[in-house]
């Protein structure tokens, strides 16, 4: 536990007005792909309503990290506790956690054989056992929130990338999750569609959702994040509130990364 403290308590104190309760606790977590050590001694606590942006060069393990939180990836060492439940091989517990954790993927992963509305109601009906008409009402509410209610009866293949990603966000929200994970939600989009997705994410952040976002959208990080985490080669190198992070990066690798990403 001692090294946990030293890592999370960075040189500049983390400013957060959020709740005191940790909804995610990751302690001394390691992960390997075969012999390849992808995540090394990850220690991370996320408070309720906290908004975290994770950045870092490709292959740094940031996607793997958030995919460990809902067990799309299995960790081999250490502890992950989400919403008071520790992730183990117990399928029941995994499913319990997954009901509370929404994830938005880089490639949307909408179900192409179902209409937009059916995509949104699938989880509520089959996992939460919500009656169909109630689930559809809720789905329409979220579609309005992401501003595409008129697309409800279309198939995902008929929508633009930006629209598909907004549907994917609405689909996750329909499960009433306590935590939302975003795995590079805008990297597969054409430039003119990035804004419509980011706008939805900003609005979501304003509602007080706990969010962990893997992204290179530094503008989003500056306006929305409570904390920015920089990862490289499977380690959390540096974390800070956005102003401190962007204006006074401490670590050489962070400085290098920022100079590369902000250069253009």
């Amino acid at each position: 536990m001692a090294d946990t403290e030293s890592l999370t308590e960075n040189k500049s104190p983390i400013v957060s007005s959020k709740g005191e309760e940790d909804i995610i606790q990751i302690v001394g977590m390691h992960k390997w792909y075969g012999d390849f050590h992808v995540l090394k001694n990850i220690n991370l606590k996320v408070k309720v309503q906290e908004r975290i942006v994770v950045c870092g060069p490709s292959g740094s393990g940031k996607s793997t990290l958030i995919r460990c939180i809902n067990r799309l990836e299995e960790h081999q060492k250490g502890q992950i506790i989400v919403n008071g439940i520790e992730l183990t091989n117990d399928l029941k517990k995994i499913e319990e956690i997954r009901r509370e954790v929404g994830i938005v993927f880089q490639h949307f992963n909408l179900f192409p054989h179902l209409t937009v509305l059916e995509n949104l109601t699938l989880g509520p009906i089959w996992v939460r056992h919500t009656p169909k008409n109630e689930a559809e009402e809720m789905a329409m509410k979220y579609l309005e929130r992401v501003k595409i209610p008129e697309q409800a009866l279309k198939f995902p293949g008929q929508l633009s990338g930006g629209q598909q990603q907004r549907v994917a966000i609405a689909r996750s929200l329909c499960m009433n999750p306590k935590i939302m994970l975003f795995d590079e939600p805008t990297s597969a989009l054409d430039p003119e569609m990035i804004k419509e997705v980011l706008d939805v994410m900003v609005e979501l952040a304003e509602t007080g959702m706990t969010m962990i976002v893997v992204s290179h959208e530094m503008g989003f990080a500056k306006t929305v994040a409570d904390r920015v985490i920089f990862m490289d080669e499977g380690e959390i190198i540096e974390q800070n509130e956005p102003h401190g992070f962007f204006d006074r990066p401490q670590h050489d690798r962070t400085k290098l990364f920022l100079s590369q990403i902000l250069a253009h």
Binding site: R99, G102, F105, H107, F111, G123
Partner: peptide
Amino acid sequence: PNGQYEAADAMGLT
């Protein structure tokens, strides 16, 4: 695609 399995799993479907 693997993403379909993942999206279904991530929803908590058995």
